[in-house]
């Protein structure tokens, strides 16, 4: 397991063009770096934003940032951190053996949206720090019947950066 200090959060502003994902992915693949999460959103017709998380020691991380920066289809590379930036993941799960008290607890404790389904099932929709998502999964590991997570979205708060 890679240690937490090696966990990286990177946002790329890229050209919105077919093949750009493959180009970015191949930079990681050729260095045998596993991408933990990847999400893409459109900024406008010409630009997209890719949020990536992966683990990498500092030295190699510095190099890959420069490699990404010099790629002609990358406009900007922003580095996010759990302390200063808004890092969120969407999480949807169906829990079994739930009643209104569990539902209320989850709503308050996790600020999640909950919907009771038939057969004491509970639909949970959560938008949270990925660590909180992990906590939730751990806390309800005996009840989670199925779940999906979106991968991490990173919004850097530039005012904290120089």
């Amino acid at each position: 397991m890679a240690s937490d200090e090696n966990k990286r959060f990177v946002v790329l502003r890229v050209l919105n063009m077919p093949g750009v994902m493959e180009r970015i992915a191949s930079i990681f693949a050729r260095r045998a770096i596993n991408i933990d999460t990847i999400t893409v959103g459109m900024v406008n017709g010409k630009t997209s934003e890719i949020s990536l998380t992966f683990s990498l020691p500092q030295e190699k991380f510095e190099n890959i940032v420069k490699v990404l920066e010099k790629n002609p289809c990358v406009f900007e590379v922003k580095i996010g951190s759990l302390e200063y930036d808004v890092i969120r993941e969407a999480f949807v799960a169906v829990l079994k053996d739930c009643d209104t008290s569990v539902s209320d607890y989850i709503r308050v404790r996790y600020r999640a949206r909950t919907t009771l389904l038939s057969g004491s099932r509970l639909l949970v929709e959560l938008l949270a720090d990925p660590r909180v998502v992990d906590d939730f999964k751990e806390e309800f590991k005996d009840r989670v019947e199925s779940f999906s997570r979106s991968g991490v979205m990173i919004h850097t708060l530039n005012r904290f950066r120089k």
């Binding site: 077919p18 093949g19 493959e22 180009r23 191949s26 050729r30 790629n71 002609p72 289809c73």
Partner: peptide, 12 residues
């Protein structure tokens, strides 16, 4: 795809 890793940039 072949050219991605062999060029500074490629287009289709």
């Amino acid at each position: 795809s072949m050219m991605i890793g062999l060029t500074k940039m490629n287009f289709l």
